[in-house]
Design a binder for these strands. Structure first.
Length: 207
DNA sequence: ACGATGATTGTCT
DNA sequence: GACAATCATCGTC
């Protein structure tokens, strides 16, 4: 029997080496992957639609000025969950690069695929289309909190998981642009999104 | 110890 | 599209 294509394989965590690439490559590569959390009430998860890359070499990154208590997780080996608080909200990243290098990829948006009832409850005041279309919103929907900071996403045995679904994402379906909500390094096109209509890949999502 | 700042969100026009 | 809310973090006094 021939070797299975990756797209036919069961979802599995990304290997450590995936997170040792540059943040831009990881941000691009995480589009179409699944982020999920197993918490009180059940599993909630979805497919990642939008990411942003950050690296200590550029001033918009929390790690740019060196290791601080808040951003210490960015300096862990690639594949660790970095959760931080901003404006009364928490946002989640995955650390990138070898230990000692401060870089990460921010999860900006996803489409919920699991635990829709829990998402509806946790995002009750928002319309369905705004459930998980921002970094703080998706954390609230998945119930990711500051206590999840530092979790290793490579082992796959924690409450938060980042899974490779094997979906083939064509370059033509990826839009790159400037990052949102920053005032420094605004010229870098380090924001990546799946273009409208490219998910789900089976084409059932048209208007 | 004090003040400026922010990888956002929700609300109003 | 514009703007305020709101408080931990970080830099400075």
């Amino acid at each position: 029997m021939s070797r299975r294509r990756r797209s036919d394989a069961a979802p599995r965590p990304f290997p450590r080496r995936f997170f040792l690439q540059h943040a831009v490559e990881v941000a691009r590569g995480l589009l179409g992957a699944r982020l999920e959390r197993d918490g009180v009430g059940g599993l909630v998860g979805g497919v990642i639609l939008e990411t942003e890359a950050y690296d200590q070499a550029e001033p918009a990154c929390h790690a740019h000025k060196g290791e601080r208590p808040r951003c210490r997780t960015l300096f862990l080996a690639g594949g660790h969950l970095y959760v931080y608080r901003i404006h009364q909200v928490v946002c989640a990243n995955v650390s990138v690069g070898p230990a000692g290098h401060g870089a990460g990829v921010l999860f900006r948006a996803l489409v919920p695929t699991h635990g829709l009832e829990l998402v509806a409850a946790r995002r009750a005041t928002a319309p369905r289309r705004a459930w998980t279309d921002g970094p703080g919103k998706l954390c609230k929907a998945l119930a990711i909190t500051l206590e999840d900071d530092g979790l290793d996403l490579v082992t796959g045995d924690g409450p938060v998981r980042l899974l490779d679904l094997g979906a083939r994402v064509a370059d033509a379906d990826v839009v790159a642009g400037p990052r949102v909500g920053i005032s420094l390094a605004v010229d870098l096109p380090w924001r990546f999104q799946l273009s409208a209509g490219s998910w789900p890949p089976t084409g059932a999502g048209g208007a």
